[in-house]
């Protein structure tokens, strides 16, 4: 039974080399898109009359914020798949996305606060979107902490899957309640969404950088999932076979 699904993509043994081949492609396209995006954001886009050049931070802040939300939903998707069909690979994919998602949230937070300083005069103004990002960061850290607290990989996969699904249901509720709370107290004057009117070139810059971030995330996630496989499948045959070959190869060279 094991031999037949060795070549089905859902088995780690078959996915390991395939992921290996895909990583350079995603990495390269991420680099190219990032270069174009940065060139637009830092050079091509005109200086804004109100915020001067400080607004250029949105070319990093907005894509990172988008990605932090998007990665969480993709993670919840893989978790649901892993929980539903009991496939180890999808659970490993969910596990590999969490750190990058947390980092994207972190980037969104500190670029947002660095942008807030010149525009509102303070690093943190309890703006609706920034507050929701902060809570999203806690959700990510909760999943990573739960993952580290459980030794048995199978239980860790399923527990983190339940947590990320419960979290995914709560993310829109949290965003809605924080926005409600924000408008109730501060009104919309102090809000990041009061970005300068969106010239076409700026939107293009942000979209390109968003895709760059997405390809970067895929490349990193594929790298990490391969490492997770090495860590977890060390008992199974294909890993030792993989490394037995390397060792022999090394001896010959």
């Amino acid at each position: 039974m094991a031999a037949s699904n060795k070549y089905k993509l859902s088995s780690p043994a078959a996915f390991y080399p395939v992921a290996g081949r895909m990583i350079p492609w995603f990495g390269a396209s991420a680099a190219v898109l990032a270069a174009i995006g940065l060139w637009i954001g830092l050079w091509l886009a005109p200086t804004d009359f109100a915020q001067g050049d400080a607004y250029r931070i949105i070319f990093i802040h907005v894509p990172a914020a988008w990605m932090s939300m998007f990665i969480y939903l993709v993670m919840a998707f893989w978790s649901a798949l892993g929980l539903g069909f009991n496939t180890r690979l999808s659970a490993m994919m969910a596990q590999s996305l969490a750190p990058t998602g947390a980092l994207m949230t972190l980037i969104a937070l500190f670029t947002g606060s660095l942008w807030g300083r010149p525009t509102w005069g303070t690093y943190w103004a309890w703006d609706a979107r920034m507050t929701s990002e902060l809570i999203l960061l806690f959700l990510y850290l909760g999943i990573i902490a739960l993952r580290n607290a459980i030794d048995d990989p199978r239980r860790a996969d399923r527990a983190c899957a339940v947590l990320s699904l419960v979290g995914a249901i709560n993310v829109p509720i949290i965003y809605f309640s924080v926005r409600w709370w924000n408008t109730l107290h501060q009104g919309s004057s102090v809000s990041l969404s009061a970005a300068p009117r969106m010239a076409a070139v700026m939107l293009a810059g942000m979209l390109i950088l968003a895709f760059a971030a997405w390809f970067y995330t895929i490349a990193v996630a594929l790298c990490r999932v391969r490492v997770i496989m090495l860590e977890r499948e060390s008992g199974s045959g294909w890993v030792s076979e993989l490394f037995a070959l390397n060792i022999v190869h090394l001896k010959k060279a």
């Binding site: 830092l42 400080a54 250029r56 931070i57 990093i60 802040h61 670029t111 660095l114």
Partner: peptide
């Protein structure tokens, strides 16, 4: 100089 906001812009890009 980034129109005087260099610290914030390069701070953000650098940290990222």
């Amino acid at each position: 100089a980034m129109g005087g906001y260099g610290y914030y812009v390069w701070g953000s890009y650098g940290m990222t």
